[in-house]
Simulated assay, not measured.
Amino acid sequence: MGDRRLKIREIAEIIGISYERIQNIIVNELGFHKVSARWVPRLLSVEQKRTRLTISRDCLELFEADADDFLNRFVTMDETWVHYCTPETKQQSKQWRRPGSPPPKKAKSILSANKVMASVFWDSKGVIMIDYLERG
């Protein structure tokens, strides 16, 4: 079947039989059911798939050679933004004022203005290194 996105109604019009009969044939006789495409982060090229297969085979060989030490050989990392702005609390911003005087004004602080990128590296025993890279 060339186009698997055809609707039952379209197939019924092309063949010239009822909608119900086409639905019965597709679902009950052929065992088809309609499924939505699954979202994946990225579609890999043939070369990327080949590289992934090679790496997977190498990892499997390492595992088979020394299963107990296998996980100890891996180091992984993740990145996250760390906000280091500590805004003044409502209690800290209180002031003594005369009756009838307007309250003090304070601009809302923006968390994204003061942040650094933290890169965390770890292995099976724990954190190895944390590296901070400032914005810009």
Rank of each mutant, 00 (worst) to 15 (best):
C85H: 03
H83M: 06
E10G: 05
S56D: 00
F121E: 11
K106A: 10
E29I: 06
P87D: 05
E88Q: 09
K90C: 04
R73P: 01
F121H: 11
F32Y: 15
M1D: 06
E61W: 01
W81K: 03
E134V: 08
T86N: 11
I11E: 03
N28V: 12
P103E: 05
L71F: 13
W81I: 00
V40W: 00
K34G: 07
R21N: 11
I22A: 04
S101D: 14
K94P: 02
I130A: 12
V120C: 14
K115M: 07
D78M: 06
W39T: 04
T89P: 02
A113V: 05
F70T: 02
Q95P: 01
R9H: 07
S112D: 13
D3A: 07
R98Q: 15
R21A: 12
F32L: 15
A107T: 13
K105V: 08
G136S: 15
C85M: 04
D3L: 10
I26L: 14
K34M: 09
T54D: 04
K49H: 02
V116W: 00
N28F: 10
F74N: 11
T54C: 04
P102C: 03
T51R: 08
N114W: 03
A12Y: 03
V127A: 09
S18Q: 12
L60M: 08
P102G: 01
L43A: 05
Q92P: 01
S109V: 10
R52M: 01
K34R: 14
T51H: 04
I11T: 04
R42M: 02
M117C: 15
L111V: 08
E64S: 00
V27F: 11
S45K: 06
Y132W: 13
T86C: 03
R42H: 06
V120P: 00
A65V: 02
R97I: 15
E64D: 02
R73W: 08
L53G: 00
R4A: 06
T89S: 14
L6P: 03
Q92E: 13
L53C: 01
E10N: 07
S112C: 12
E47W: 04
A118M: 14
L43P: 00
E79H: 11
D66R: 10
